[in-house]
Design a protein around this nucleic acid. Sequence first.
DNA 1: CGCATAGTGAGAGCACTGCTCTTGCAAATA
DNA 2: TATTTGCAAGAGCAGTGCTCTCACTATGCG
Lengths: 227, 227
Amino acid sequence: MRRWSVGVRDDQRAHQIETIKRVARQLLATHGSTGLVLRDIAREMGQTSSAMYRYFANRDELLTALIVDAYNDLGAVVERAEAKVDRNECFERFVATGKTIRRWALAHPHEYALIFGTPIPNYQAPPETIVAASRVVLVLATIVNDLPRKQHVRRVGSLNASDLEPGIGEFLVGVTPSQAGRALATWSSLFGLISFELFGHFVGSVKNRSAFFEASLEEFWKGLLSE
Amino acid sequence: MRRWSVGVRDDQRAHQIETIKRVARQLLATHGSTGLVLRDIAREMGQTSSAMYRYFANRDELLTALIVDAYNDLGAVVERAEAKVDRNECFERFVATGKTIRRWALAHPHEYALIFGTPIPNYQAPPETIVAASRVVLVLATIVNDLPRKQHVRRVGSLNASDLEPGIGEFLVGVTPSQAGRALATWSSLFGLISFELFGHFVGSVKNRSAFFEASLEEFWKGLLSE
DNA sequence: CGCATAGTGAGAGCACTGCTCTTGCAAATA
DNA sequence: TATTTGCAAGAGCAGTGCTCTCACTATGCG
């Protein structure tokens, strides 16, 4: 019966979708997000623009696929890099995570902008993107969770438990809401640092961006822990 | 002679330009940056799209004008709010600055995105934007400069003087490069926090965004100073 | 094995975009 | 008053996302 077989048609279809996404990513890298023109993708593949709509209902659907792919790519790269470090060395794990995120951002600026830049107008992120997005946050949360008892995460001053959503308890276990807030703040600082560099706000002030980033990473870690 | 007179024509022209920018800002706020359509602006004014090109050579030129205006508006608002605080209370000045930036960002999300979001592809920021951009940074730098001697700005770990551009000495006087780096890092963290909130990355994790922001501000200040 | 069907690509076309060029007109200036 | 100057309109170009119809073809069932 071979009911499980995907068939030649499904195979071709999957291959076509993969090709479209590959060309789209390429176009995204060379011409930016506005350069992501369906006609151009089709032209590159020797097809008509209308043919693209056989695989993606509209431009947003293609965009969603690219966003999910970007989140997953970043997530996978970060997970791999962080896993290489000795489990007991939480600081080194944090540094490896941060440096990997930055390296990925610099290597894929347009995909980074796609997921961390200005939200696309009239675009509602479907739930699948949120799941993919949580991967990299989870890596950071796990590091915090793996901290030995004595190294307490510094609480964020006047922050109350009710100021955070109850749901984050699933990500960050065993830490107070205020400490979870500290992790979130660290994550947003990390994002701010990378975005500032990528979006050109360090032009004229910071010369050695790598050194600045790595020095800041150390400070983030110090700020994360209470002395 | 009245050579200095601007004349009725120049007056009308300036008025037209101001009207275009006002309508553009309005359209920006309601429809986002992609909704900034020259035809729509013209329609709103009861004119033809081609008429717009009498005042702005192209879309980018209008965009530049809006960017400069946004920088100046934010700068002016922040300067005014910070100036109200007692000169001796540096922490309060910092808090006032931070809160004002956030309030402005929440009130003008699209203009914030215009200047701090993903860079517009194929758009080269002219020097005039850089001047306007420095206003708000200067406010933060002045606070650091006004710190009493004993309160030393904490240096950024392994950061060297050569890692920063020599030019920032003009902004931050009397502090070591490493301390100037600290100010820059604080600024980028502040930016990251506001952007995270504005771009929806706190959905599902942070509930009371104001409380989270203000608590983080305190922490930023603590991190800025050595104990 | 033959055939109905689902999947496919092409093409025409719609309403929209930024932008250019020409033309006629009105108003400020010398 | 004469003329320069600024101005808006209109037609039009090349491009956009997207829709619809129409042939064609390979697949898998009877």
